[in-house]
């Protein structure tokens, strides 16, 4: 058994917002509330959940762009949450991020060359001659012609911009790439190109991905293992095939039933969830999903279920009705 590259344990992020002057009027938004998972070297871990469930916040905490309220992040044997200053900067070289919005994540006033070269300059990895060579190499890798180096981001389409973003993330030869919904802003036809590129790059450079998405079909395509998040908590986690074919948690079942099947005559059971995602500032008691769960009963309202291994499938889910549904 290999040592995991990234271990996240009991990660929490509580945003405190004060309304009014009284201390008692403080509101705590539990964006991420106790998330734990491991990612092994070379695998792709897909994190899914609907908007506002805390998946991007989790990614940002791992990137050290947000400070965790509680919990530990261990990357390559080092506690990231305890690093700062020079040590953190040095560690940052090994994990990079690809952002959701390729229109906003590239500085419109910088040329493609400057954008891709920035991490190299920051980490002092190349001489000035070496930087040019490396930028061209990276453009080749992500499938963009070399002549685009002098252009500005607004001259590119979404897919091309995302390739620039990928080249920037690859520049410092990281071990882990956190991809925060890298294809959700793109056309479906472009999505598959970018996903295939990410897969090819993984094989070529031994990359490990934390792939954040809300689209289960995308996650199904790229992931080795999947974690399903709901309202700041992981509700199900396990191997891709096991989760896709044999979902245990009612929320995962509902998500899977919403994935379109390209066959108009296919008969299937749609589970349509009622109501909206509850506010993370005022989460429901017990199981966070009980307000929308078609199978909820007394215990779900009063008691928060822990992640436990399902006997039938071997992957874990947080549900009181595990193995019974």
């Amino acid at each position: 058994m290999k040592e995991p590259l990234l271990q996240v344990d009991g990660l929490k992020k509580h945003f405190v917002s004060q309304k009014g002057f009284r201390k008692s009027s403080k509101q705590v938004v539990k964006a991420v509330d106790g998330v734990s998972f491991d990612i092994n070297p070379g695998e792709t871990f897909g994190l899914v959940g609907e908007s506002g469930c805390g998946k991007s916040t989790t990614g940002r905490m791992i990137m050290q762009m947000l400070e965790a309220t509680e919990g530990t992040i261990t990357f390559d044997g080092e506690r990231l949450d305890q690093l700062s200053g020079k040590a953190l900067k040095k560690a940052r070289k090994d994990f990079q991020m690809i952002f959701q919005d390729p229109y906003a994540s590239l500085n419109p006033r910088m040329t493609v060359r400057d954008i891709i070269a920035e991490p190299l300059i920051v980490h002092e990895m190349e001489t000035s001659n070496g930087i040019d060579r490396r930028v061209y190499e990276l453009l080749d890798t992500v499938g963009l012609p070399r002549k685009v180096a002098e252009r500005y981001p607004h001259e590119f389409s979404g897919g091309q911009r995302q390739r620039i973003g990928i080249a920037r993330a690859l520049a410092v030869k990281p071990k882990l790439i956190i991809a925060d919904e890298p294809v959700s802003a793109l056309d479906v036809s472009i999505q598959s190109q970018v996903l295939n590129l990410l897969k090819d790059l993984q094989d070529e450079f031994d990359l490990t991905y934390l792939f954040i998405a809300h689209d289960l079909s995308v996650v199904d395509f790229i992931s080795d293992r999947i974690g399903v998040m709901y309202l700041g908590k992981l509700v199900e986690i396990g191997d891709r095939d096991s989760i896709i074919q044999n979902p245990q948690h009612p929320y995962t079942k509902a998500l899977l039933s919403a994935v379109p099947v390209p066959d108009p005559r296919a008969k299937r059971e749609r589970i349509v969830l009622e109501g909206d995602l509850p506010s993370p500032s005022n989460p429901p008691s017990g199981c966070p999903f009980h307000t929308r769960c078609p199978f909820a009963w007394d215990r779900c309202v009063n008691e928060t279920p822990e992640l436990q291994t399902a006997e039938t499938t071997g992957h874990t889910a947080a549900c009181h009705l595990l193995d019974e549904l």
Partner: peptide, 14 residues
Amino acid sequence: STLYVEATQSIGSS
């Protein structure tokens, strides 16, 4: 508050 500034900070820029 733009994403590209966040991106450059995540790279480790001073």
